[in-house]
Design a protein around this nucleic acid. Structure first.
Lengths: 230, 230
DNA sequence: CCTACCGATCGGTAGG
DNA sequence: CCTACCGATCGGTAGG
């Protein structure tokens, strides 16, 4: 596992002349990927939307696979900026866990071209297609789950949470996010967000409780009446 | 007088000659869709794997969209057979809710070509692409969530569960399934299933309401090979 | 970054 | 169910 795997963000990115174009390509590509999936990000289509020639755009990447990988990395940087950073700015413990969840909800609503989460789409797209794109995706997703787990452990260290399994919490929170994404984006359910918040509050309540990682009411709690312990 | 004007001939949908081919096409197509997504089910590729000509295969469907819709319907029939039917065979109430979850886990592991759930893949694939395929998918997914919710309501009627929101429960259980799918298939996490069961037991415990411990998990736990860490 | 290509494959049609 | 096509588009290359 990537227990100590801090995201290797060794991005050289010195601002050269073609870099602005490259950034705008990745910007557009990640927006497109949110809508039609990573595989749907076609070089021709991307070039057309950007007013470039196919080969002109292609020159920035060695292959489509490289483009896909860089789209994932680009989206990851945005994700860290929009979700992880606000969480880290919050106080350690339950407030940070809470901030993390709220930032994700906001990202899912208003993220890249407000088109849903690129990683959610890519996850099901590449779970059966071995290769470097999948490898990159797996590493990013493990980092994200580990980030949630680590926030949980800090909350334990702060005395906000009782004993419990951090990886269990991470998978549960992730499930809450995925179910929200599905209900909101595919089904268009207006109550999806409200339910996601209720589910999250139930997970928090269980985390506070003595002994068990998961053992609390998922249905009785409402977003408004919940009161943090600090 | 002829009180029973029953039709003399019911025409019992006897399998016509092209039907066997059509079924085998849909069988292969849904297996393929589980691996590469619905959009990745190419007529040419499908024909090649089946030893048919492209146009010969195409003749069975009016368009690729029609093929995709029929793949969804075909997979849905299998899903109902593999997941909903075993649940309905279980006694109403908590046992049925439990059977539903276990059947889904089994489906996700060993479903069509043991390649994951077609609907999970299609959900993120088509959540942003309006059209008849998406419409079909939405209806099937709503039916599935409603099936979960209804099982929950029956458990309430049986006195197994306390007061609580059935739709909330459905979204939470669905999230548990999606998180399992992600952790197991993309991340290859060997503990994914164990955590999914723990999460589900927590949801059941919450559904029973305060006063009921999580103890019920022990007696109904399946004799699986997981190490029951909870 | 461009024009001008390549072979392969796409969904789909004509006609049998 | 087939052969024989169609125009469009795919990822990628040559050469500038």
């Amino acid at each position: 596992m990537a227990s100590t795997a801090r995201p290797a963000r060794v991005v050289p990115l010195r601002p050269r002349k073609g870099d602005l174009t490259r950034q705008s390509i990745l910007q557009k590509a990640s927006a497109l990927a949110s809508q039609v999936g990573l595989a749907g990000v076609t070089i021709g289509r991307l070039a057309e939307e950007l007013g470039l020639s196919k080969s002109g755009l292609f020159a920035h990447f060695r292959s489509k696979e490289a483009l896909q990988e860089q789209v994932l990395r680009f989206a990851s940087e945005r994700f860290i900026e929009a979700v992880a950073r606000p969480a880290i700015s919050a106080p350690r413990g339950e407030p940070r866990v809470r901030a993390l969840f709220e930032s994700w909800l906001h990202w899912a609503r208003t993220g890249t071209a407000r088109a849903g989460c690129v990683f959610v789409a890519a996850s099901t797209e590449f779970d059966d297609q071995p290769g470097p794109v999948r490898d990159t995706l797996v590493r990013l997703q493990k980092d994200w789950l580990e980030f949630i787990a680590q926030a949980y452990r800090l909350a334990q260290a702060e005395g906000h949470f009782g004993t419990g399994d951090a990886e269990q919490f991470a998978q549960d929170v992730h499930g809450t996010m995925l179910a929200y994404h599905h209900a909101a984006r595919l089904l268009g359910d207006p109550k999806a967000e409200q339910r996601a918040r209720a589910a999250f509050e139930a997970l928090l309540g269980a985390a506070r409780g003595p002994g068990h990682a998961v053992a609390a009411g998922a249905k009785t709690r409402r977003p408004g009446k919940e009161k943090a312990r600090d």
